[in-house]
Nucleic acid binder design. Sequence first.
DNA 1: CTTGATCTATTTGTCAACGATAAGTAAGAC
DNA 2: GTCTTACTTATCGTTGACAAATAGATCAAG
Lengths: 231, 231
Amino acid sequence: MALTTDQARSSLTDDAIVERIVNAVMEQRLRAGAKLPESALCDAFQCNRTQIRRILVVLAERGVVTLHANRGAFVSSPDATAAHEVFEARRAVERSIVLLAVERIEEGALEGLRANIRAGAAAEARGDRSQSIRLSGEFHLRLAEVVGNSVLTKFLGELVARTSLIIGLHGSHGARSCAEAEHKGLADALERRDAHGAAEAMEHHLRHIENTLDIYDGPEQSVDIVSIFAR
Amino acid sequence: MALTTDQARSSLTDDAIVERIVNAVMEQRLRAGAKLPESALCDAFQCNRTQIRRILVVLAERGVVTLHANRGAFVSSPDATAAHEVFEARRAVERSIVLLAVERIEEGALEGLRANIRAGAAAEARGDRSQSIRLSGEFHLRLAEVVGNSVLTKFLGELVARTSLIIGLHGSHGARSCAEAEHKGLADALERRDAHGAAEAMEHHLRHIENTLDIYDGPEQSVDIVSIFAR
DNA sequence: CTTGATCTATTTGTCAACGATAAGTAAGAC
DNA sequence: GTCTTACTTATCGTTGACAAATAGATCAAG
């Protein structure tokens, strides 16, 4: 299990560990359903259980992990309903972010977005899937930063992480290759300060991602026996 | 075997305690800046520090509480910038919620909203400030429930709590009396399934609230936690 | 071979004690 | 009178031990 990276990390803060775990989820090194034993996390981050347990509570609050009483923490495994809710919420939040970003974006940020697109295309070209995924998420988070609203940025951070999780669970590989083209269209609309165009581009981009997913409820979902035989 | 109050309290779940603290914040029984000592909370809810510390992490994650290392937990005291960010985020989220609700609302939910408005007007009429505040927040949460998206509902829950906090910190009392009229206009637009009208009504409502605020930074206060939660 | 029960071991959840930090208080110097 | 400094106290943060619960293994029976 790819929890460990190669640094000596004596005193990582809570935030730093949360970020690392979220990154691992977003890059799909940690997949939906993976168990996160406290002891393994303690080993991975060289810290004690108190800190890890606190971090797991934070991750659960963000919907990235799910806690089962007396069984421990697992990377969340959203069913079809939850997946659609996350995408719907993300469309809602990102639409607002784009509309605000159109008014506030400046040249430096725009160039940052374009650099991200180039890096994403390069990663895609050399088949570096995990980098490609990471950069794709980073594009949206950069855009959120443009708005300068920490609350919206926090919401989007949660949504991007959960979306990555869903893509990893239900995604087909082909869809990803379109991201850079659509990001480019978005950046162009932002440069023109075309609010309607940018909002539509975002909407289309997110619906496109969702539509390429094959969302079904996995085999290990617990079935409601009672409802099956209630008739 | 009759459960005593203490026994009943000792079995409160994390969520229940979180909800009670959030309610206390929303009803402004707990004001911005109030210190929340662990021992006082342990007394109030008859539980131990382990549980309370876990709950404080959740509340901090929701922005309702701020943790200062080695000093403890305080009800968040958002400055002007943070307050503006919360309102901006709330406008963004609520606009999306209204647009979805226009399409999905049904008669029962609409009647629930109208009942809330009546109850709010009654509370306002008899000068029951804390009920009035609670019902006003409940209106928006009911509306979110209509959409049936747990992610959006969670976001709005956080935003409503933080907004109440800000109103309690910076608010003038006069503004509140307009809420019922504006809620009624919103309900009417929803009934007509008038997407544009409902969105505009929500936007106006939220901007109206924000504009009546007079933002300044106040001092921390100490309060009697046990009496706030005694019931 | 499958089903069911029992036992063992691992992991989580809780608790109480200890150490660390910061706020509050009192004493002394200017 | 006030400012500084040292001390005291209260609260937070961490640790380690213990209790509780679950999952897995072993074994017996149909």
